[in-house]
Simulated scan of single mutants.
Amino acid sequence: MLLPFEKMHANGDDFVIVDMRGRKNIIDRRLIEQMGDRNRGIGFNQLAVIVDCEDADARLTFWNPDGTTLDACGSATRGVAWKLFRETDRLKIIVRTNHGLLTCTKEADGLITVDMGRPLFLWHEIPIDRKLDTLRLPILGEPAACSMGNPHCSLFLDDFENADVIGVGQRIESDPLFPQKTNVHFVQILSPSGIRLRIWERGGGIPL
């Protein structure tokens, strides 16, 4: 069967949107792995599937290119919201994710914002495998951890240019401390209002 899709990006972080509203959802891990292959498929950092929802404008499920799932994705949610806003003259819509209900707003300049909610800092919310101080984890670099619907681990660095994003990212992503694996952030603080950031994405590698 033909499977229509849309491909979008947010500053180079690319994602695919598949609208399954009103149809049987045939998306499974095998299909995701085929679609996520950048050489033989479509390629993406995340894929979002839109399905019908009784208590929101739509329900979203998210996939990494390796076939694993994630509870929320801000960039892909904004892409879905842009698609849904084309169907209505409203300025706010609500979508349901595994992270909960997310409010999407169409701003005056036409850009789309998503309220992702407050960060979660408790060890079992992230989750990590045991009760720990999540602002100083007992692994190399003493990173901090939180959840925005997915586990995030942040290393604060002085030598940002020489950060081994691939090597350290892969190692921390699969550290036993994170039973669901984790995204890894490499952060240099520039000022109270500015940072530099490089990312190793769980199940996806380095996005732009």
Results as ranks from 00 to 15, higher is better:
F5E: 11
K7C: 09
H9I: 07
D13A: 12
F15S: 03
F15N: 08
I17D: 10
V18D: 09
V18Q: 08
M20D: 02
R23Q: 15
R23C: 08
I26W: 04
R29I: 03
R30T: 12
E33R: 14
Q34F: 05
M35Y: 01
D37C: 11
D37Y: 02
R38C: 04
G41P: 06
G41N: 09
N45M: 11
I50M: 13
I50K: 08
I50L: 07
V51P: 11
W63H: 00
N64F: 07
P65T: 08
D66H: 06
D66V: 05
G67D: 07
R78G: 08
G79W: 01
A81P: 02
F85Q: 12
R86Y: 00
L91D: 15
R96V: 04
H99V: 08
H99T: 01
G100S: 02
T103A: 15
T103F: 04
C104V: 06
L111E: 08
M116I: 03
M116C: 01
P119F: 04
P127K: 08
D129F: 00
R130A: 12
D133T: 00
L137K: 04
P143C: 13
A145M: 01
C146G: 01
N150W: 06
N150Y: 01
H152Y: 07
H152V: 13
C153H: 05
F156P: 07
L157K: 13
D159T: 12
A163S: 13
D164R: 13
V168N: 02
R171P: 00
R171E: 13
P176D: 12
L177H: 05
P179L: 04
K181R: 15
N183G: 06
L190W: 05
P192I: 04
P192F: 01
S193M: 08
L197D: 03
G205I: 06
